[in-house]
């Protein structure tokens, strides 16, 4: 959120060197012949009450990052500290308790709700499971949640198939809010919605953040949406973060050639600005066999010999706002 809050600099989520590899198995006895390096050494921190946007194209590992932090997928390496506790080190009983504090909102409003359950059960099931409310108390809480996300409590005895995509997304949000979480991973939460509904949901997410002082990890491929909702943005390419800075700085001064290409590829709703864009050649390489050196070098217009051998580490650029980039050439580009 681009609002002036007193930045207490308290980090709610701290991700260090996160790696998630999926083994590739072949043959009769499922021998491991290689790994898909979906997430390959990702580190970031999110301040309490702020939003970090995570952008990248499909297959760059952004969804895997979100699910690994929530321990829905097992990490290969790295450490995630949430509110002082080590997420991967917790025994399963305490992990269940921690799950109350971190939630997930999904992309597809159709597959993310159990079609056999009524709205009241979808939203309220976790309250029962964590013994937070039962009976009348639960009904009251569910009604409150539904009203808060802009639905009527009359809807609580209906099934998901009786709602439109936008309404379903609201139900998904109500479910995530039921346990009063501190942190929500929004995994492409508005990508599947119609344009006029998308803005409704974005506003709702922002209002909820203000009211409940939530912290978001907002994962999306749409740079315009991410830029609108986030305080900070991390750009991912092939399992690695290539650029990280505040969202305004990213728009004003994108430094990594991939970020620049991504920005210029966004179609602008303005017919007078049919810009000369940097159209990237080629496609995203397979994460099972990433290129050597900088993963972006085969598509990069600036690449030179060094880029194919070694990748630059994430480095602070300039001395103003926090702006870290992993590129050898970004300084030259700038001048």
């Amino acid at each position: 959120m681009k609002r002036n809050m007193e930045s207490t600099k308290k980090y709610l989520v701290d991700v260090k060197g996160l790696k998630t590899y999926f083994p590739i198995k072949r043959g009769l006895f499922s021998r491991v012949v290689g790994h898909v390096k979906a997430v390959d050494g990702v580190s970031f921190k999110i301040q309490a009450g702020k939003t970090l946007g995570l952008v990248g194209e499909s297959g760059c590992g952004k969804t895997t990052v979100g699910r690994t932090i929530l321990r829905l997928i097992n990490a290969t390496d790295g450490k995630v500290t949430f509110d002082g506790s080590d997420v991967f080190g917790l025994p399963s009983k305490e992990m269940r308790k921690l799950r109350c504090d971190m939630q997930l909102i999904f992309q597809d409003p159709y597959s993310s709700l159990n079609p056999r359950m009524t709205v009241a059960n979808i939203v309220g099931e976790s309250l029962t499971a964590h013994k937070m409310a039962t009976g009348r108390q639960r009904r009251k809480k569910v009604a409150e949640l539904l009203e808060r996300v802009g639905l009527s409590p009359h809807h609580s005895s209906r099934y998901p198939h009786e709602f439109s995509g936008g309404q379903r997304q609201r139900i998904g949000i109500a479910r995530a809010l039921a346990l009063d979480p501190k942190f929500i991973v929004c995994d492409e939460a508005v990508s599947a919605l119609d344009v006029s509904i998308q803005s409704q949901i974005i506003n709702l997410l922002q209002d909820l953040q203000d009211e409940m002082s939530l912290t978001y990890l907002f994962i999306a491929h749409d740079l315009a949406v991410v830029e609108h909702i986030s305080d900070y943005v991390a750009v991912m390419y092939l399992g690695k973060i290539v650029e990280y800075t505040s969202s305004r700085e990213l728009y004003k001064n994108p430094l990594h050639p991939y970020t620049r290409a991504l920005m210029s590829a966004i179609p602008m709703p303005d017919p007078h600005r049919r810009q000369q864009r940097i159209v990237l050649g080629g496609e995203v390489p397979s994460p099972s066999n990433p290129p050597s050196g900088c993963p972006f070098h085969p598509r990069c217009p600036m690449a030179e010999q060094r880029c194919s051998v070694e990748m630059q580490e994430l480095k602070q650029q300039g001395d103003g706002v926090e702006h870290i980039v992993a590129c050898w050439k970004c300084k030259e580009w700038n001048t």
Partner: peptide, 24 residues
Amino acid sequence: QGLLRSLPRVGSVQERLEVIGGTV
């Protein structure tokens, strides 16, 4: 008009998006 106004735009500084209320 509503559709055009409800778009988040790169580089704009609007706080809130304008919204077409209701559903299709």
